[in-house]
Design a protein around this nucleic acid. Structure first.
Length: 286
DNA sequence: ACCCAGGCGGGCG
DNA sequence: CGCCCGCATGGG
């Protein structure tokens, strides 16, 4: 077990806020623990303490991996200082204090957010878990029993049939999944894109059929740690319009410029707090 | 019954 | 360019 002292960290808000971990990790609120496939193992995180100050205990994961995965190296006081631009953001920080922007495997992020389009969180979770269980290599315990599955690789998903993917509940997204698996095997090395700039990275990502502006922003932020990325989904759009534009409809490009001017290189964190706070206030469609 | 969900690709003007 | 439509599926 690896123990880490952490400040400004909430396992609950980090897990729940519709990042890839939300879609496939198992979270126990009572015990503050999180189970998820990480590499070839089933990792477990346990948290104790408060969101101000606490301890993370990790099993099957190195300290460095935990720090990376949960954004623990982020300077939250500096981030909060920069995104606390108004009372709405101050409320969001207060309400979801300790929520981190996580760092996720690029391919896993591609899959999760392809599944996210015109979908709701509850259903994205069900579909993602079904796909992991169907196509992912088994993770075994000491007795050789399967206790979980790894996230399937692109190569594994190439073998999937349309019928199987439909049975997983993917709906019309099955085509995008399959073509993304093929493209990321034959035409693009996702793991060679870390050093690209935000703009260059997005350009590479939108070349994948099924990935447009919004999903590319999600992948840039959650899969590559591009903190200037500001994904605008229906919730973020509505929240921005309500809070900053007196409820008037705005074009996406204008909202991107607004966010860049207001939050700059911290826009990704601003987005995550704005998205989650705005969504929770409306309490629709779990 | 109708509307909506962390959108995108394609077609049309 | 911008706009509009269909795309599957389950929940409110």
């Amino acid at each position: 077990m690896n123990d880490l002292d952490v400040r400004a960290f909430s396992l609950k808000h980090t897990f729940e806020s519709a990042q890839p971990l939300t879609f496939y990790a198992d979270y126990n609120d009572a015990t503050q623990s999180l189970l998820f496939p990480s590499g070839q193992k089933l990792a477990m995180i346990k948290f104790s303490g408060s969101s101000r100050q606490g301890i993370i205990s990790a099993a099957n994961m190195s300290r460095a991996a935990v720090v990376k995965r949960f954004g623990l190296a982020d300077n939250m006081q500096r981030i909060y200082k920069n995104i606390r631009t108004d009372s709405f953001m101050a409320d969001a920080i207060e309400e979801y204090y300790g929520m981190r922007v996580t760092h996720n495997d690029p391919w896993e992020t591609v899959v999760c957010f392809i599944l996210s389009q015109v979908n709701n969180v509850k259903r994205i979770r069900r579909i993602t878990k079904k796909i992991i269980g169907t196509y992912g290599s088994p993770i075994l315990d000491a007795e050789g029993n399967t206790i979980a599955n790894r996230f399937p690789t692109a190569v594994q998903l190439i073998e999937a049939s349309k019928q199987e993917l439909i049975e997983c509940g993917t709906g019309f997204r099955w085509r995008y999944l399959k073509s993304a698996a093929e493209y990321c095997t034959e035409n693009l090395d996702l793991y060679g894109l870390y050093r690209k700039s935000y703009d260059q990275l997005k350009q590479e990502l939108v070349a994948i059929s099924g990935i447009g502006e919004k999903i590319a922003d999600c992948i840039a932020l959650l899969g590559y740690g591009k903190m200037e990325s500001f994904p605008i989904d229906v919730w973020v759009k509505r929240t921005l319009e309500t809070v900053y534009f007196r409820g008037r409809k705005q074009k996406i490009d204008k909202l991107h410029r607004f966010a860049a001017a207001r939050w700059g290189s911290y826009a990704g964190y601003a987005q995550q707090y704005l998205y989650w706070h705005g969504r929770q206030m409306r309490l629709l469609n779990g």
